[in-house]
Structure formats: structure tokens, C-alpha cells
Amino acid sequence: MAVLSVRDVKVSYGANEALKGVSFEAVSGAVGLLGPNGAGKSTLIKALLNLVPLSSGAFTVLGQESARLGSGLRDQVGYVPESQGIRAGLSGVAWVALLGEVSGLPRRAAVERAHETLQYVGLGEARYREGQTYSTGMQQRLKLAAALVHDPALVLLDEPTAGMDPTGRDEMLELCRDLVKQGKTLLFSTHILKDVEAVCSRVVILHKGKVAACAGLEEVTRGEAQHFLVQWEGKRDEFVAACQQAGWKAGDGQNNLLKVVLPQGAGPRELFGLASGLQGSIHRFVREETSLEEVFLEALAKETV
């Protein structure tokens, strides 16, 4: 069952249409919400939480139909905002406990949960310090603890690694991976491709308020086409021309190898068949996985065209 289903969601800020009919589904696990700045990632998350009004569309969250999340349903959702979102003058534990209470936990349980979640995110030592004195990385983890204090099933993370140093970023990604192991569903909004590759099993690429691509990470990176790196002992131009004549893409790849992209249905057999008709031979042959970056850029290029 889909934990989150988004159907034809449209959001406008005056004349500017921020989301132009976004639809996708998220099953349990981490879903990367990827896109350049201004793609509509934060708007989508805020629309889910009823923090921006919808022009049209609907959500299904944890099997419940909703034009937007009602109060009761929001107990099942945790939210990590992109910027700020920490009350000045309150210690980390007081802030997390307060939000636990707002999410319905009795006072004592909220304080206990606040201590537990702060330990979990690695802020056990700093929990009595004022939250706004934390470093950027600590503040991000404090916001994650606040999002987890009421034990939600779905966690919406808006740029959770923004402004973090590499160590802090790795720790945050490790926490996200662990949350997935705990059975949580994460909607992980970011423009950092490596973060999505590190955490998510599924990716939704947003561009200019539309879904440019949506699939499992493996499916997306493998794609329909097959990419090969070939070391050709012979005339390179002749090999490239033969490939192009066959309707394949061919060109320079990394490490002085040739990159050949075979369409769906064609495989190594066809490649070697083509090579046998030429003067020369294939000395090295490597199947190349498409990186998320390539898929991302390809999706953006398609949209731009």
C-alpha cells in the first residue's frame, strides 16, 4: 500500500503556478524529492501539511483520503523545515518536549521521548543548551528529533543536510538510513544528488512545478538504454561511424574509452556482432551504470526542450 499518494496537486502563489499537477506515489522506504531551486519541492511538502493552500488535487496519506492533512492525520507525520524552526530561549530538550506535547503526548511522556530522541540523533550531551546556540548541523539534528518525538510513520524532510559539513552530513544520512530500517517512510527533499543516492530507494524529480521523472532509483539509473565503455583496438572513427549507422549513440567516454549507448532490445551480442564486421577488436568492455546526476540532467533537459 502506498504510504503517500499525491494526485494532480496544483499550487499557485498569485499568478505564479508553483506546482502544475504533481502526481506520484510513495511506498514505505525513502523517496527522494529531487529538483533544482524553485522546482516546487518545499511547496509540495508545505501543501501536504496544509501550510500553503491547494488550488486543486488531493493526497492519500496512510490510506486516508484527504484534500490536505487533517489534524488527526498530522500526528502520523513529522516535519523537518528547511530553515530555522527553533524557538529562541528554549533548551533543546524543552523545545522537543513542547512539540511532543503539541503532538498529543502527555507531559511526562513528551519529556521522556525528548530525551530519547535527542540521544538518538546524537545531541544527548547538548540537550540542555539553548537550541539556537547549536551549530548548523546540530540544529538540523534537533529539528529531526523534534520531527520524531511523536513517533510518526511518515517524515517529511526539507533539505535536511543544507549547510552541514561533510561529517555532519554523513551522520544525518546515516540517521535517515536507520529510520528507513525502523520502518519509517521518508520524503527526502533535496537538490543534492548524492544524498538521494545514499538514502533513497525511489526518486521523484521535480522541475518547474512538474514531475520530470519518477521511479525506483535502480530503475531510473539503469534506464531503458544500456551504457557501455569500450576499448577499441582499431580505427576509432570507423567504429563510431558504424555504431551511429546502426542507430546507436557513440562517443568519447572516460579514461580514453569509447562510450556506446545501446537502445532497448540491443545488447552485448549486437555490439560484438557489429565489431566482428570491422577491422579491429574490442579489448575491454564495461557495462556502465547511469548516475543519478545524468538522469537528473536528462530529465531537466527534456523539460527544458
Binding site: L49, L51, S71, R74, Y79, P81, R87, V102
Partner: peptide, 11 residues
Amino acid sequence: ERTLEVFLGRA
């Protein structure tokens, strides 16, 4: 402090 969206994002 952008805590308003944190409060209203809850129940």
C-alpha cells in the same frame, strides 16, 4: 523564527 510552520504543521 519560523516556528509558526512547525506549530501549524502539527495537529
